[in-house]
Each structure stands twice: as C-alpha cells, then as structure tokens.
Design a protein around this nucleic acid. Structure first.
Length: 422
RNA sequence: GUGAGUAUAGCUCAGUUGGUCAGAGCACCAGGUUGUGGCCCUGGGGGUCGUGGGUUCAAGUCCCACUACUCACCCCA
C-alpha cells in the first residue's frame, strides 16, 4: 500500500470545517486592516531562499526540499513566504505603484524536519508583509493582527514576546561584546553551542541545555547595546501595544533564526501545544529587499503556523463549530422514481438548498437513517399515492410534522423552509 | 541528523508466565409483520495480529533486523 510521505497529512472532509473557519477568519481580519492576498508559486529558484533566509541558517543548510528539474535548474519548495513575497514585490515593481504595499497569504510550506506534535514537513502558514515604511506602527500592527486572529478563535493561553535586534552595526558591536564575555567560558558550552559561537552567536540564547543557560544567564543583553533609533522605535512599538491593550513581555533573549531580521522581532507562544509552542513569529527586515536586488525598502511581517493554531484550539477546547447539516434529504418510496428524484434534487439545488438523496437503492428505513445521520432538516418523500396526485410529502425531522406539497410548488420550497427555521 | 516509546478489525483498545486468542465497544450493513428516522433489540460483513527472519512440538504472545507512527532533542510556524 502506498502511504502519504512522512511528515505530510491528508486533511479529511471531517476536518475541513475548522480549516475553513480559520481561513475565513484570517481573510476577514487581514481585509479589515486592508491587506490584500498574494499567491506566489510553491517553488522558487533555490538561490532566492539561500540569499534571503541566509546560507548559514538551519532552514537553508539542512531542511529545504531542493532538487534539480529536467532543465537542471535548482528548485526549492518554499520553506517560508517572505523571500517569495519580496521577490514578487521587486519583480513586479510594486513599490513603484504605491508607497506602501500590504499583503497577506495562506499557503503550504515545506521543510524536511523530523515530524512531531505541531511540526510537519508540509505545513500551512498564514502571514502578512508590509513593504515600504520603517514606521514602528506597522511593527505593532503585525502583532495586533496576529493577536486579533488568535483571540478571535477563543485562545486564552497566549504569550506575546517582543524584542529588538537593532540595526546591523549595533548588533555587530554587541556580538563582539558577547564574544568577549564568552571567550573564557566557551569550553563549557554544549557542542552545538560551540558551533553557534562560530556561525551565529546570538542563537546560543535559544539553547535549552542547562549548562548553556547557566552561562548565558549573566551574559550582556543585546537590548542594552541598541542604537538610538532602534531603541526609540522599540519604545513606540511598546507604547502602541499598551494603548491597544495587548499584553506583552519584553524577552531580551528572543533571537529569531532567520538572518534577515532587524529591529523589532516578536513571537506568540501557546502553553498548549507541546514543545512546538510558537504559534507565530515575525519581525522587521529593513535590508532584505535590497539584499535581493530591489531598491532599499523597509519591511515588516509575520507568519503563523496553522496546524499549531488548530492544535492549540483543540487543546484549549475552543472552536466548537456548529454541526454540519443539509436542508433536504429526498427519500425514494418507489424505486422507479429515481429519474424524477434526480430532477427534483437538481431543481432544488438551483434554489440554493443543500439537497441529497440515496444512490445505493436502499430501503426507506435505511434512507431515513441516512437522512438523520446527515443531520437533514427536512425529508421529502417521493412516491406512493401522493405522487399519483402530483404531490410529495415534506417532513420536518425535528418536529415530525409533515405536509403534502404540490410538485408545481417545489420551486418555492426554499422560502417555506426558511420560514420553518425562524 | 540524535534519542526513547509504540505497531492486533475503519476507529479506540483487551488479549495474563508462549498452548481454542483471533476478541470487545464504537462505526458500517441488513432486519424488527405489506411506505417514515433518531432510542432499543436481533443478526451480519471485516483482521494472514506492521514486514521479514529466528527460537519452539507450538508465537500477537520470546529474540533479531527492517519499516512506519508518536514524543522529545535539534530547528522553527
């Protein structure tokens, strides 16, 4: 038997409603903030991600689905969205058409990691990007939108963490300080952190190993070495968040794993998803557009993991959606009427009613059971004496009441049923 | 990439120290007096017990390998 590839999951009909719910909410909130959807290809040239995300990051160095196509071009399935959005922004000169570009997306992403709770190899993210303004108001707006979506789902166990990475020169100064601090303690770090020391020293803060945390406890913090501009912008972000009543914590050790971040970074954590607790993350990337060959353009954005969010919803037992139902189930009493029934169903469906009937030639009893299972509001009996008089029987499954209806009146059944409901 | 745990019907699981152990509940299907459901009752279909070796008179039940899944590390959404 052929099975789904490791780390991929089928979203079955029984689960699709929560996805619709989440997607509709996401679209609604983004539209309220006047963000417009962008859809970029599932794969891009490998170089885009290598340059955009950073050669040294784990995502690029060991997690990407990269392969050569038949014309020997190196292709990569997108592991995140920002690089693709920026590529499209540059390619279509969106910055020339308007000073500020606000876009959102909902899309599958691909990373070849070992699957676990809240982590798949094909997973889904929604997110937003605003390109063209350095204003910290937009940083706060990103957090606001993400928070708004999560709150709207009913999630309670949320924790907003923010930090500022500053501009590159300030960060370089700080890295030197950190190197100085660690120079005599380096040998006590875990092997992984020794590698980080060389490649991306900031990430040592992310280590969960106690011996690393012990050493880093007293390390100088980036936030103390920030440049004036970053400090100032960070204060504005905080002020704005307070004014919006969004609770947050400053987390000086929050370091994002992608190279392109500058200034504000943030993350929203749930206490209800196991080890993969980060529901969304993002930040400012003022140098990325230029890095990828565009005119210098500041940008800010975030991405949220949809599987993780749905997992958190499940674990918090929120997101209790109403049961699915159909309006009418047509029960065939005389088997030879199947053609007539398909015609009736077709006409009713054209009047915006959800209609179904039996395709398996089953007994009346079985059809009734089926109607019940489908949570049908009404059953329409077709056949018998009534049918000889050009009538069908409409039964309200909730009350058990039934009445005869002329075949010629069926096209107005929609109104009748809506009156029942209210 | 590293580590641990699990692997019996569609689903959730029982199966005691190897010897009627191939089961239960749910789900599914058909019936319950000649056209009407939800509850209830009766009956039914469905598994070579993840795969391949081995030990034994005898293996879901012990051993080995492989594979898959789960969780954690790592990383990140």
């Amino acid at each position: 038997m052929i099975k789904a590839i490791t780390g991929t999951k089928d979203i079955l009909p029984s689960e699709i409603r929560k996805w619709y719910h989440l997607e509709n909410l996401v679209k609604k909130i983004f539209h309220n903030f006047n963000y417009k959807e962008i859809r970029t290809p599932v794969f891009e040239e490998t170089a885009l991600f290598a340059r955009g995300i950073g050669e040294e990051t784990d995502i690029v160095s060991k997690e990407m689905y990269t392969f050569k196509d038949r014309s020997d071009t190196s292709i990569t399935l997108k592991p995140e969205m920002t690089a693709g959005v920026v590529r499209a922004f540059i390619e279509h000169s969106l910055g020339e058409k308007q000073p500020l570009t606000k876009v959102f997306y909902i899309s599958p992403m691909f990373r070849q990691e070992r699957p676990q709770a809240g982590r798949l190899r094909q997973f889904h993210q929604f997110g937003a990007e605003a390109l063209g303004s350095p204003s910290p108001l937009l940083d706060a707006e990103m957090i606001e939108m993400a928070y708004e979506i999560l709150k709207n789902l009913g999630l309670k166990d949320l924790n907003v963490k923010i930090n500022s990475l500053g501009i590159p020169s300030a960060r370089e100064n700080y890295k030197n300080e950190l190197r100085k601090y660690l120079s005599d303690k380096k040998h006590k770090l875990t092997e992984e952190s020794k590698i980080r020391f060389e490649k991306n020293i900031l990430r040592i803060f992310d280590s969960k190993a106690e011996q690393d945390q012990e050493i880093m406890k007293n390390a100088p913090l980036l936030i103390e070495y920030l440049d004036e501009e970053s400090k100032h912008d960070f204060e504005i972000v905080k002020t704005y968040l307070k004014n919006l009543n969004i609770p947050f914590e400053v987390e000086p050790k929050l370091v994002r794993g992608l190279d392109y971040y500058t200034k504000t970074t943030f993350e929203i954590i749930s206490g209800k998803v196991g080890a993969q607790s980060s529901l969304c993350g993002g930040g400012r990337y003022d140098l990325l557009v230029e890095e990828l060959g565009g005119k210098p353009t500041p940008g800010v954005g975030f991405a949220a993991g949809m599987e993780r969010i749905l997992l958190a919803c499940e674990n918090e037992n929120v997101l209790n959606l109403p049961e699915p139902f159909i309006d009418i189930y047509i029960v065939r009493i005389d088997n030879e009427l199947i053609l007539k029934i398909s015609e009736i169903a077709s006409n009713l469906r054209k009047t915006e009613l959800k209609v179904d009937y039996d395709y398996l030639n089953r007994s009346v009893k079985a059809q009734m059971r089926e109607a019940n299972k489908m949570n049908a509001k009404f059953v329409l009996f077709v056949g018998g004496d009534e049918f000889k008089n050009d009538e069908v029987v409409l039964k309200n499954l909730e009350t058990g009441q039934q009445e005869n209806i002329k075949l010629s009146d069926l096209n107005s059944l929609n109104n009748k049923i809506k009156n029942y409901g209210s």
